[in-house]
Every structure is written in C-alpha cells, then in structure tokens.
Amino acid sequence: MANTTDTGVSVTDETTSDITVEAPTAAAPEAAPASTPVDPADLVFDVSDLSVYYGDFRAVRDVNMTVERNQITALIGPSGCGKSTVLRSFNRMNDLIPTARVTGDLIYRGVDLYDPRVDPVEVRRRIGMVFQKPNPFPKSIYDNVAYGPRIAGQKKGLDEVVESSLRKAALWDEVKDRLGDSAIGLSGGQQQRLSIARAIATQPEVLLMDEPCSALDPIATARIEELMAEIKSEYTILIVTHNMQQAARVSDRTAFFSVELDEHNDRRTGLLVEYTDTAKLFSNPDDERTENYITGRFG
C-alpha cells in the first residue's frame, strides 16, 4: 500500500531516534529515513515513556510514539507483548482493571489523558473502541447503535444517527428491514460491523480497534478492511492485528512491539521496538528483531 505522505525525511523525529537508542541489539543510531515532519496541529497522540503495570508486573515499558490525524496506525507484535494493553491505555479502558497503572505521558491533542481532572468517560466518548470479540449488547440492532448517543443524553435525531452509523459501517443494507431484531442473531462479521457502527455513533475522533477481524472469516475481514479505508478520512484509527498482511494493506504507519525476558523474575515485559511508515517497516526495517518477526523467524 502506497503511503501518500511518504515524502520527507526528518532527523528530528524524536520517536524514531528514541527507539533506535533503546534497541540494544541494533546497530549504532543511524539517520531514520522515511518519516513525515509532523505538523503539531495534526498530532492526535503524543506518547512519551509510557509504561503500563498490572500490580507490580510491568507489562509494557517505554513506549514513545506519535499518531497523526486521519492516519491508520497498526500495532503488531507477538502475543503477550502488550499491544492490547497499550491500545487500552489510549482511551483509559485500563482504568477498569483495578491493578492497572500507567506511567509516562500520553498527550491527546494537547491534553494529558491521565491528568487527574480528566474524566475517562469523556475520553471514551471521543476515543471509541472496537473489541476483538464482537460484543453486541443483548438488545435490538437499533438500540445497540443508539446506545452511545442515548447515554450521552441525545433524545432526538436518533434515527438519523443510527442510519448514518450503520451506513458508514457498511451494514445498513443488510439490517435496515430488521432494526428491531436482537443483535445476537447477526453473524459474526455483521456483529463486528455493528460494533463499529456502535462505536462511530458517538461521533468519536479516534477509533481503537483490538484485533477486530480475528474472529471473522476472510470475506468479512475484507469488508472491514474496506470499511476502514472508507472511513479513514473522518477518523484517526489505531488497529492491533496479528495479521501482517492486514497491517501492510491498511495502515500508514506500523508499530512493532516485542517482548523481553527479565532474568530476575522471569516475567516478560513488552516494548516498542520500531515505529515507522508501514512501507518501510515491511520492506526495510531498521531493527533486527523486526526483520526476524516479519520474515517469520520469530513468533
């Protein structure tokens, strides 16, 4: 997939240089190519030194990355390296896990998301989430989509919101005659698109998707991928995926996470190894571990 913004080279891109420094096995820091100079106004997320703990256990450490608007960012890496953990910290879903704790800075459009004055509810209304397993509510299709707007206090114009959200999620034609039916009766792929419709009904600015296609067959997966390309102009999307082809197909930039074994306590801590334009990461990665992973030498 051609990257439309793949033009300039920036040596001042902090993100890339951070990663290079941090990767112990990598060669000496070299000039990071293929990175766009970021207009601060386009910056949606600016993450620095983010670590996430579950109790005493540090699940991920030292994540540094920036996300620009209207881009699709893919997070890839072996199982257990903390992709979901990082993604969930982007809209404070980790707050729901009593032991989870976040350190470092996670700046969303100039505001520190973990500032004590920030209300996670407000964050989640702007940064929606689609989960790995489709999780329709045991309600009607209509009520599923209208759920977000309703709890946000919207009473009028729900019909329009439901229709436009279902249209954007490419589900409208399939369900328009049975909006009152239970959402549980939909197929897995339909349920997942319904989850997407439910997420965009609250008019979020960012969509976080955690392996949205892992429970779907190839056809349903293709539909979701198309859908992402279509709605990209309106949303900033972060997607976790185990499917490297998918990452290569849909994303503009890709972050590769890996795990590192701590000999002291035998726990595995995840870390961000490389974060760059998708085209570059898959064709010419800087880090040996990335290379090993994308060529299938490391699982």
Binding site: N91, M93, L96, V121, E122, R124, R125, G128, M129, V130, F131, K133, N135, P136, F137, P138, Y147, G148, I151, A152, S195, R198, A199, A201, T202
Partner: peptide, 17 residues
C-alpha cells in the same frame, strides 16, 4: 460477561449507565 461492561464503557458510558 465482562464484554458487555467493556462494550458499554467503550462508548463512553458512566458506571451508573
């Protein structure tokens, strides 16, 4: 199921919601 909780929190529901 916790997926229901997560789904609701994910679209910005408050705890009481």
């Amino acid at each position: 199921p916790s997926s229901l909780r997560e789904g609701a929190y994910g679209v910005g529901a408050t705890q009481w919601d």
